[in-house]
Simulated scan of single mutants.
Amino acid sequence: MTTTTPQILLQAERLTFHFPHRALFTGWSAQFGAGLSLVCGGDGSGKSTLLRLLAGVLAPQSGHLTLNGAELARHPDAYRTQVFWCDPADGALDSLGARDYLALRRHQHPAWDVAALEEDLDALGLWPHLDKPLYALSTGMRRKLRLAAGLASGAPLTLFDGPLAALDRRSADYVLDRLDDCADSTGRAVIVAHHAALDGVPLATLVDLPGDGSTSS
C-alpha cells in the first residue's frame, strides 16, 4: 500500500505580530496544504488579523510566509498574485459596479472558473443585482458577491473571513456545501476564519486560537 504526504502550499514560520496594546502572535508557526482549513476562535482572538497576515496585506514584526515557494518578504508580487483576499471591512472597491468587480477579480486570477461563478450567482440570487454598484447592495449581497468571486478565483490561497455572516439560512447552507467542495481541492488551499466549527465539513487543518488573543508556537 502506497501513502502520499500532502503537499504543503503555505508555510508560516515563527510569525510575530503585536499591537501596541497587546501581543497577538509570538513565534507562531503552521503549515497549510490543499483543501479546506479553518481558523477558529472567539471575538478578539486574532482570526481576521491572521488572515490579513497570510494575505500579505499586514506585515509581521518577524517571521516568514512562503506560498508555493514564493517567500513574501523576498518576492511579494509572486506571493500576492497567488492570493484571493477580500477584507469584509474594506470599502475601497464599493464604487465599482458588481459586474466590474467580477471582471477585475477575473483579470487578477488566471484560473478563474466561469462555470462555477455562474452556478454560484444563480444559487445566491445575485443575477438581478449585477448592474448595481457595490455600495447599493445590502451587506449580505456584497458578501455573497465576494464569496462567489473567491470560490471562482481558483487562487492557490483563498481566504474567507466570516463567510456565513449576514447570510440567510438558505445561502449559508449553500456556501457550506461549496466549502465542502473545497475540501477536495488539489493545489489550492482555502482558509476560512469562523467563530465555531463548520459541522460536517472535512478539514485539512484546524487552527484554534485562544480566547485571550495571545498565541505562541
Rank of each mutant, 00 (worst) to 15 (best):
A103W: 04
D100L: 09
G162V: 01
T16I: 08
S185M: 03
L38P: 03
R106T: 05
T5V: 12
A166S: 13
A59S: 10
A183I: 10
G63F: 13
L96D: 04
T2R: 13
L58A: 06
Q61G: 03
D208V: 10
H109G: 03
R105E: 11
R52P: 06
S29N: 06
T26C: 05
A166Y: 06
S214N: 11
R146A: 15
L206E: 12
V114Q: 00
P163S: 01
G200A: 02
L157R: 00
D212G: 05
S216W: 15
F19W: 12
P163M: 01
R105F: 06
F32S: 07
L164I: 01
P156G: 05
A12V: 14
L50C: 08
Y135T: 06
R80T: 13
S45A: 15
L24G: 02
A148R: 05
D77E: 15
R106H: 09
S48R: 10
A89R: 12
P210W: 03
D181Y: 10
S214R: 13
G140M: 03
D173Q: 12
A98F: 09
T158M: 00
T66R: 15
A172E: 07
L36N: 09
L50M: 15
A55L: 00
H64I: 12
D122C: 13
S138H: 08
N68C: 14
S185I: 01
Y79K: 05
P20K: 02
L9Q: 00
P133A: 06
T16N: 07
P60T: 02
C86F: 01
Q61E: 06
C182R: 15
G56I: 04
A183Y: 13
R142H: 01
S216P: 08
A73K: 14
D131F: 00
R106A: 13
L93K: 01
L134C: 04
G140C: 02
S214C: 15
A183N: 10
T26S: 10
N68K: 12
F84S: 02
H107M: 06
A73W: 10
T3I: 14
G27N: 14
S216L: 12
T139I: 07
A23K: 11
C40N: 00
T66M: 08
S217L: 06
V57N: 04
L102I: 02
G140P: 04
L209K: 04
R142P: 03
R74L: 11
D181T: 13
L130Y: 07
R22A: 11
E119F: 07
T4V: 13
D208P: 05
L137I: 07
L24S: 01
T16L: 05
A149H: 13
G200I: 02
G35A: 12
A193R: 06
G187E: 03
S214W: 08
V57I: 14
W127D: 09
W28H: 06
A59K: 09
G162I: 00
L38K: 03
D120H: 11
R80G: 08
T49P: 10
R74C: 09
G140S: 02
W127A: 11
H109Y: 07
F19A: 09
T5R: 09
S216F: 14
T26F: 00
Y79P: 08
P210L: 03
Q11K: 08
L151A: 13
A103F: 04
A30T: 11
K144C: 11
V175Y: 01
G44P: 03
L147N: 07
R143H: 08
R106Y: 04
Q61T: 01
D161I: 01
D87V: 00
